[in-house]
Amino acid sequence: MGFVELKNIDLSYDGSKYILKDLNLTIEKGELVSLLGPSGCGKTTTLRIIAGLINPNSGSFIVDGENLTNVPVHKRNFGMVFQSYALFPHMTVFDNVAFGLKNRKMDKNTIKEKVGRILEVTDLSQFAGRFPKQMSGGQRQRVALARALVVEPKLLLLDEPLSNLDAKLRISMRTEIKRIQQKLGITTVFVTHDQEECFSISDKVAVMNNGDIEQYDTPENIYKYPSTEFVARFIGFDNFFNVEKANYHNYKDIFGHQFVIDYEDSRTQAVATIRPDDIQVVPEDSNMNSIKGIVDVRTFLGDSYQYEIKTELGKINVNHKSEKPYQQGDAVYLLMPSNKIILV
């Protein structure tokens, strides 16, 4: 049994439309698990159920062997960082961070010591007397993190904590979060819609869609072997087409093009997919894994060009680096390496 267990969680506000349907999730102690998905997929709702801010219609929530399903928010002892940071505007940084400790009726000296220590860890010591309004976005973010961590929570919950920061700060903050999380060994649930952010810091990722988890695995596995079309699309796969197994690793599409696909799969019918980055544009036809197409649209991406290429299989998107870009109307051949095609 895992440290955190969500079992058969259902949530519906009207009894007919389910926001979460039979959701199961297990998190091991010390792990940083991300809930990844598009907006409306139920990831924030799941986090709020974990926090106790929403009660599920059915199912149970267990932490460390203790059933917390009906324990109110303020007795759960979790730390939560909100997307808006939710710092108390009428309190100084020190008082914001001390708030959780005061609720636990600790004596003044202990509070002072603990707050002092966490402010040091989050590099905020010199700002203790400031009000949230006097601080920058990144600093407020750290205050929110310090406030959640100082109570030594059983679980740290992060609700898109980096989405209000600029791109550069976002990258340094996520490293910071990972560093602190590892240092304190605290089990963490992180909600995000940004796959790069999520892959970079997570031990495991749960990709969510329509109130359910589509795939729950390590970032590496999800990146390489998405298990459903939705996951594949969400993490950057494109160019989906139906294939039929001939034998072993040999497949055919409906037009008879032959493909060798290394991916292990026992099904006779499957959907093949490949990332735009992994397709090579070649001047000549080769027997296997290649189809002919005509350049339809070209867009410049900075380090490469993206082509939309008309083929028998429909439109295929390709990212290609070349000194001399192809022009609209050029005939090209697309080579899909056997180790880059996956089946979903």
Binding site: H74, N77, G79, F88, G100, N103, R104
Partner: peptide, 25 residues
């Protein structure tokens, strides 16, 4: 901001405390 009340609750404040310490001020 409704988040403030929820934040207070996650930090261990019951309804009464989140009212007196956060909302009222």
């Amino acid at each position: 901001d409704g988040d403030l009340i929820e934040a207070a609750q996650t930090l261990g404040a019951n309804y009464f405390k989140s009212f007196t310490k956060v909302i009222l001020p």
